[in-house]
Computed example of a mutant assay.
Amino acid sequence: MSSQDVLREWALYCAAMGWHVFPLVSASKRPAVRGWEARATIDRDRIARCWGSGAFNIGLATGPSRLLVVDCDTAKQPGEVDGATALTRLADERGVELPATYTVATPSGGRHLYFTLPPGVRLRNTAGQLAPRIDTRSGGGYVVAPGSVLAEGGYELADDTDPAPLPGWLLQVLCERPAPATSSAGVGPVARPSAYAASALRGECDEVRSAPPGRHNEVLSRAAYRVGRLVGGGLLDAEHARAELTHAAHALVSAECGCTPAEVTRVIAAGLAKGRTQPRSLPSRSDAEVAA
């Protein structure tokens, strides 16, 4: 069976699990289509046609799939605690055990733990909210599905247990708002961004994911600056904006271009900080709609 056939079978397998999928660039974590969350599907005919046309990696849109995926990363520095250990410690502190659940091993040695969301619950992506080296993906996010392959290795199924319901204690922690970082602009947390600000953030994140080789830093810096202006204007929560940009920039980290997580973090921080010095307000049309 060819690699293209294998990827198609994995995409169909995900759809059979009720998980909405979309194509990623071959041997990459970068979406191959714009508007990927809206276009993610469980339709077997669409999937067969798409993966019949190329050896695409598989993106799994966590929001439509009603999943919360805990992304436990490996330690990057000597003495640093890896994400899986940190998550176990969080459970130990609460006197509970992590349930067995669907788990995917990543090429870097990390783990993706899949959990189902309770009915009516909507969660956003987080970066480091549970603990350092732990991100989560839900509404507005995606993970690379099992069967996908990067230059450094594949995403392999480590535990095929059906996804467990999201533990109540994890849901509680994820619903807690982290203390807002102190800023010179004095911008506090935003409880709910306007439709305009949320749409603008999604658009900038899509631009980052689609950044062409050789322009990764340029596109990421520009997006972070624009988003920073919205944060400075009190239209977006700073930590939410940082988490979304960081997740979008995961698609840029690859052996081919030399982008690293540390460089991505630096570029995002610099862009957000610069943007916050030039705060942006809502367009007049949106103001009028709100007033109405």
Rank of each mutant, 00 (worst) to 15 (best):
L157R: 08
P163L: 09
H247M: 12
V173T: 11
P193N: 04
S148C: 09
P146H: 12
W169M: 05
D160E: 15
H247D: 07
L230H: 07
V231S: 10
L157C: 04
G186R: 07
G232M: 13
E156M: 05
V187Y: 07
H247T: 07
L150T: 09
G140C: 06
N217R: 12
Y225M: 05
V190R: 05
V173I: 09
P163H: 13
A198I: 01
A211G: 02
R137A: 10
L235F: 05
D162N: 02
L150F: 12
V143L: 05
R222H: 11
R242Y: 09
N217Y: 00
G233L: 06
E239D: 14
V190K: 05
A238W: 09
T246H: 12
L236N: 10
C205H: 03
L236V: 07
E152L: 08
H216F: 13
E218Q: 15
S183I: 02
G153Y: 08
S148F: 08
A195R: 14
S194A: 11
D237F: 03
L157H: 03
R137Q: 07
P146R: 14
V144W: 02
R229L: 06
L201I: 05
C205G: 00
G233Q: 10
P167M: 01
S183M: 02
E218C: 03
D162F: 02
S210P: 00
L166D: 08
D237V: 14
E176Y: 00
A164G: 10
E207S: 12
G140A: 06
E207Y: 00
E244F: 03
R209T: 15
V231D: 10
R222V: 10
S210Y: 00
P146N: 06
V187D: 08
S221N: 15
L166P: 07
G168F: 01
